[in-house]
């Protein structure tokens, strides 16, 4: 199980990396943390002509507080995201979810940009990007693009990224005050990909829900939001019955797959329970 031959470029600047992608005729892959890409290479599921290593490009990592949002560089390692006070303050749900992202050693190296670009439907970060209405910044020879998370994930391991584009950053607009949250994940073992994961935020004012978001991972080909269920909560005083009703909508609308980790029926069952509980927790835990 050894990787196939490839040509390698350790890009020193973003421009150098972009040039390399542009010259490679779509035969290049971007190497960030490598925690998903390298297993695929070792299994020879991919045989790119070029690997463009972006690990040495200065300025691609780091978390910045910008007016009303957090700006996270693509090369920010999971361990940094997990431990960053800026993240813990603005997005405690992200901090909580990070402990579910693989394992200690993988989080040392894996990056947020890599996780989003890889777009595993059972991974936590793509789901959080959906939940938090993230915008994803990319760059290519043609310039910069900003893609809304909802337009970014196109299928299992498929995104809106062009072969000549590099994902450079993700921007998370801050949540309104008085937003409660919940993150729950069921996986075969802690650290495995989600069989089903549910993330919920509920914003309340004067006892009424002003914003609600529900996202799933591990259920279907992409991470997914449920606007219809979310709308049923808005303007309401959330109680158990409301939570159950919204959860029922999500359960009915989700399109889980059957695989070795669990059947579609089992996933649907999980979704129903986890969403109801998630709404309860998020509504009760408002800050």
């Amino acid at each position: 199980m050894k990787p196939p031959p490839f040509k390698y470029l350790a890009a020193r600047t973003l421009d150098e990396a972009i040039d390399a992608l542009a010259c490679s005729d779509g035969e290049a892959k971007v190497l960030a943390g490598g925690q998903s890409l390298v297993p695929m290479l070792n299994f020879r599921l991919l045989e790119p002509a070029w690997l463009v290593d972006i690990n040495r490009i200065p300025g691609l990592d780091g978390i910045q507080d910008a007016a009303g949002s957090l700006h996270i560089g693509a090369l920010t390692r999971h361990k940094t995201t997990e431990n960053a006070p800026l993240i813990a303050d603005a997005f405690p749900i992200v901090t909580a979810a990070m402990s579910h992202v693989a394992h200690f050693g993988v989080r040392n190296r894996g990056t947020i940009g890599g996780s989003l670009a890889h777009a595993d439907p059972a991974a936590e970060l793509p789901m959080l990007a959906m939940l938090l209405d993230a915008s994803i910044t990319t760059q290519s020879g043609k310039g910069k693009r900003t893609i809304a998370a909802k337009d970014f994930f196109r299928g299992s391991l498929a995104t809106a990224l062009e072969p000549t584009e590099i994902l450079t950053a993700v921007t998370l607009p801050k949540l309104p005050p008085a937003t409660g949250w919940s993150f729950e994940e069921i996986s075969r073992r802690p650290g495995d990909f989600a069989v089903a994961a549910v993330a919920v935020t509920i914003t309340q004012q004067g006892g009424r829900c002003t914003d609600a978001r529900i996202a799933l991972a591990g259920v279907g080909a992409t991470p997914i939001r449920f606007p219809q269920a979310e709308r049923t909560l808005i303007g309401q005083t959330i109680d158990a019955a409301m939570a159950n009703a919204a959860a029922a909508i999500v359960r009915d609308q989700c399109e889980p797959q059957s695989d070795l980790q669990g059947s579609a029926d089992y996933r649907r069952h999980l979704v129903g329970h986890l969403v109801a509980r998630g709404i309860d927790v998020a509504a009760g835990a408002r800050s």
Partner: peptide, 29 residues
């Protein structure tokens, strides 16, 4: 396992434990 699951090949690179089956030697330059 050579696919990043078992951790047997873990070494410490630049102060962080890392699976040496998921990193190329050239990256350690």
């Amino acid at each position: 396992c050579e696919h990043g699951v078992c951790g047997a090949c873990t070494v410490i690179v630049n102060g962080d434990s890392t699976r040496s089956c998921l990193m190329f030697a050239v990256q350690a330059d």
